[in-house]
Amino acid sequence: MSAPLMPTPLPPPYAGAGPDGVLRTYLVADDALAARLCRGAVLSRQVLGRQLGLAAVGVLAACAATLFAGDVAVTVAATIFMVVFMAFFGCLMVGTIMLVSRSRMRRLVPAGTPMSAEFTPLWIGHRVGATYSVIPLERFDRVVAGPTVVMLCTRRRPVVLLPRELVPPQVIADYESRYGRSGRPGR
């Protein structure tokens, strides 16, 4: 006969939480907030790592293709060309993404927009203007806490993007203990 299952205790609320166990933060968006959110999301290690990986595959493919030509000078020239081309193409892509994302972010979070977040060890709630969402933390499989933004991701895609000043240090410490400094669970 096995022992009865004991219910798992609820985690304690974050330090500074109210009597209901919810830690609340607020801010009003300034002129630069949309640009900071966009820059933090687009230039995160997660996005840049993917782009660098694609560039490396392109350069390796070019090297392999020119090696079959048998001429060392052609291989070196093709490799240099591919590196320059991929660097140019990567900068062009990042610039385009930044431009499109920044204008979209400015429409979503114009200056003067009230923003708030609610944190418990089980869920996160966030408000941008009149839009409010509550999402259980178990839905996220990665949290990336950058210098300007905190991204809560599902399958490597950001679901929630918060300005760093909206996320208290004790919450970031909890996320780092859950997901590790790299942002992945269990690390």
Score class of each variant (00 low, 15 high):
M6D: 10
R139T: 07
F119C: 04
F68N: 03
L166D: 10
G53L: 09
C91R: 14
P4R: 01
G21P: 02
V159K: 04
P158E: 03
M151S: 02
D31N: 06
D20Y: 00
R50F: 09
L162R: 12
L162F: 01
V84W: 13
G58Q: 10
P185H: 03
V134N: 04
A56C: 04
A17G: 04
V167N: 00
R181C: 06
F140M: 05
I97H: 01
Q51S: 02
P11L: 06
F89G: 04
D20A: 13
E165C: 15
L67D: 13
F140I: 03
D20Q: 10
V22I: 09
F140R: 04
L48H: 00
A64D: 08
P185I: 11
G16L: 09
F68E: 06
R142T: 10
V134D: 03
H126P: 07
M98T: 13
I124S: 02
L137H: 13
R184I: 14
P121Y: 10
R39V: 14
R156L: 13
V143R: 05
A77T: 07
P163W: 09
C153H: 07
P19A: 11
L67H: 13
Q51G: 08
T131Q: 08
P147E: 10
I124E: 13
G112V: 02
P114E: 15
G49D: 09
S182W: 07
M98H: 12
C153D: 01
R36S: 08
L48Q: 10
C153L: 10
P169F: 11
A69L: 15
R50T: 08
S116N: 01
G58E: 07
M86H: 06
A78K: 12
V94A: 00
L37G: 05
A62P: 00
E118K: 01
V171Q: 00
R104H: 14
L48W: 10
G146E: 05
A111G: 15
G183S: 03
P7T: 15
